[in-house]
Write a protein that binds this DNA or RNA. Sequence first.
DNA 1: CGAATAACTTGACGTTGTCAAGACCGCTGC
DNA 2: GCAGCGGTCTTGACAACGTCAAGTTATTCG
Lengths: 199, 199
Amino acid sequence: MAVKFDTVKMRATVALMNDSYHHGDLRRALIDAAVEAIAEGGPSALSLRAVAKRAGVSHAAPAHHFGDKAGLLTAVAIQGHERFAAALERVWRDTGNFLEVGIAYVRFAIDNRAHFEVMFRPELLHDDDPELLRAQADSREMLHRGAGGADRGGHNPTAIAAWSLVHGFAELLISGNFPPEIAADPESAVRAIAARVTI
Amino acid sequence: MAVKFDTVKMRATVALMNDSYHHGDLRRALIDAAVEAIAEGGPSALSLRAVAKRAGVSHAAPAHHFGDKAGLLTAVAIQGHERFAAALERVWRDTGNFLEVGIAYVRFAIDNRAHFEVMFRPELLHDDDPELLRAQADSREMLHRGAGGADRGGHNPTAIAAWSLVHGFAELLISGNFPPEIAADPESAVRAIAARVTI
DNA sequence: CGAATAACTTGACGTTGTCAAGACCGCTGC
DNA sequence: GCAGCGGTCTTGACAACGTCAAGTTATTCG
C-alpha cells in the first residue's frame, strides 16, 4: 500500500480513518502508486485503473482527485521538480561546486527515474498548471544558480551547455542507449565528460 | 512480413494497382501516416486505428503489416536511424568538421521530430528487432566517426560528451524546455555552447 | 484455368479513460 | 444528538483502443 504521511495532522487523521470509507490520504497514495507503475513500465504504460487497483480503491477514484490522466502525471511532475530542486540546492550549498551539481542531476535521474521521465514531457502533462509552472521555475533557478551565476533570463550559454550535457547524458543513460561500461559506473563517466567542458 | 517496396518492380506494380483492393504500397503509406500522427501529438498519442483511417484502410490493416503498435513504431525508428545516419554522413563527408555534425544532429531532431521522438525510446519499440539493431549501429557508427576518431567500443569520453551535449540540447529544445530566444535560433545557440567543449 | 498465397476486411473481445449518478461519511450548526 | 451538507469514493455506463480469429478478395504460379 505504501502510504506516506509527513504532516502530523495527516498522521492523526489517517490513524482515525484507516480502513474506513474515506481513505484519508488517497491523493498521496495514488501518486506513490503512479510512481511505482511508471518505474516499472514507463509513463506510457501507466493506467489509471491499475493505479487505482494498486491503491486498493475503485477505478474512478484517480480521476476524482486529478481530473484526468494528465492531471495525475502533472502531480508526479510537480513532486519531481520539488525534490529535484531540493536535491540540487542541497548539493550546491554543501559543495559550492558546479560539477557536483551536474553529478547530482544525473544521480537524481537514476534514483528518481519515474519522476524524471515525466518532468520534461509537456505533452503528457497539463503544462499550464500554475503549480507545475512554479515548481519548474524553482528547479530551473537552482539549475542556473549551480551552473554559473547570472542567468540573464535563463539563456546564459554556459548554463545551457551544462544543462544540455548533463540532461543528454541522463536521458541516454536511463533509456539504455549507452554501452554497459558506462551504465555500470555513470558517475565517473560524468566526471570524465564534464572535464571536457570549459567553465 | 517485412516486405520492402523500394524496387522498381514494386513501384511499377503500385502504378498499376492504385485504388484497388490491394493498396500496393500500404506499408509505406502507414509509416507516413504514423509519422504525421506522431508529429501532431507525440508517440503516446499515436493510435493504430487513426493511422489506418488516415491511410484509408480498415482498422486492423496496420497490425497485419507490423504485428502490433510497437512494430509500427519500430518501423518508424528504423527509417529514422537510416535517414539520421545518412544526414550525419553527408555532413561529415562534405565538411569534415565535427562541430557541423553536431549541428546536423540538432537540425535532424528539428526537421524530423517525429522520427527523433521514437528513435531513442526502447520501451516503445521491439528493441531486439534485428533491422532496428542494424540501423542503430549504423547511425551510432556515424556519430562516433563524426565525434573524434577511434571509438574503442563506443565509450570514448569525448564522443560520449559530444553525444550527450547535442542530444540533451535537441531533447530540451523539441520538448519546449528552452526559452524562446534559444528556440528561435537553435543553430547559433548550438554553436555558442559547442564552443564550450574542448575537443 | 485453378489452386495456393498474400493483402486486406470484418467482427469480436477485453481493457482503457472519462463521465454522470449515486452511496457513504464526518462535520457543522442548531 | 441529530439533520443536513459538502466532500470522498463507488457504481455503472460509454466510446475508443489494441489485438486476435475468421472471412473475403486479389495475385501469382503451376
